[in-house]
Nucleic acid binder design. Structure first.
Length: 243
DNA sequence: TATAATGTTTGAAC
DNA sequence: AGTTCAAACATTAT
């Protein structure tokens, strides 16, 4: 479920509830969920993989981690972590992390780091990468303070598109190539969004979970790379390793 | 059926 | 004290 573009779709699906009052709250979360009862949804935002529902005086943050899911106006056959029930309709969150944020969101979040945001700033991303010269690009792409919203699928697809080996340290990658990585991190995320919207995301994967490189027909390397040990799928023939 | 995976936080261990 | 790393969370597809 996660990765930034999926959260954009969730925001869209929740739009009918904007300005509407929560009349009942359910779920097995341990947070003080009752504080949302009889309160209106004042805004619906996201930052990377964080889904944010604004109430008067506080914000609900939902993070779906690896297995989280949600339903709108439908229920799953198991207890929800949190359900927000409106006079007409409901939002159910399952197996996710829910928390309240008390702070002003502008203090908490650097919106320019969110690849899906209108405020996304590639130049700032570039500056942050300067401090990561020894870190492999497969790890920095997953760094939420730099590329909020990018997950493992996006990582693999971006690196395949720009033909860069995931184990290349950031500092060894030529400037022009770094620029294309940063650009593609955003561009692929929007492609991901539109493909997911049409339920055709998987069939557009060029690298993630693939066995063979469609450019040269050689088998992909499948390896847990970097300090994060996340799966990378790559072609050593088509993706250049800078060392 | 067992395994591993679209992820992050926490706290133990060094 | 600062860094590193495994555990925990818990569903679903292969």
């Amino acid at each position: 479920m996660p990765e930034g573009p999926s959260i954009i779709l969730l925001k869209e699906e929740c739009l009918p509830f904007l300005g509407k009052k929560v009349i009942r709250v359910e779920g097995n979360t341990k947070i003080e969920k009752e504080r949302m009862a009889n309160k209106k949804i004042l805004f619906i935002k996201s930052w990377g993989k964080h889904f944010l529902l604004g109430f008067s005086g506080f914000t609900l943050k939902v993070h779906f981690l690896m297995f989280g899911s949600y339903t709108i106006n439908a229920k799953k056959d198991r207890p929800s972590r949190l359900s927000l029930i409106f006079s007409k309709g409901e939002i159910n969150f399952y197996t996710c992390s829910v928390k309240f944020l008390e702070e002003d969101l502008d203090e908490l979040y650097d919106w320019s780091a969110d690849v899906m945001s209108d405020l996304w700033d590639p130049k700032k991303a570039r500056k942050k990468l300067k401090d990561q010269s020894d870190v492999m690009i497969c790890d920095t792409l997953l760094e939420q303070d730099i590329f909020a919203g990018v997950g493992n699928i996006i990582k693999n697809e971006v690196l395949y598109r720009v033909r860069i080996h995931p184990e290349s340290p950031v500092g060894k990658i030529p400037a022009a190539k770094l620029t294309s990585i940063i650009k593609e991190a955003r561009q692929y995320s929007f492609d991901f969004l539109e493909w997911k919207r049409l339920y055709v995301l998987r069939k557009h994967w060029l690298a993630h979970n693939k066995k063979t490189c469609l450019r040269c027909d050689l088998p992909f390397v499948r390896k847990h790379t970097g300090f994060r040990h996340r799966r990378s799928f790559f072609c050593t023939n088509c993706q250049k390793l800078y060392v």
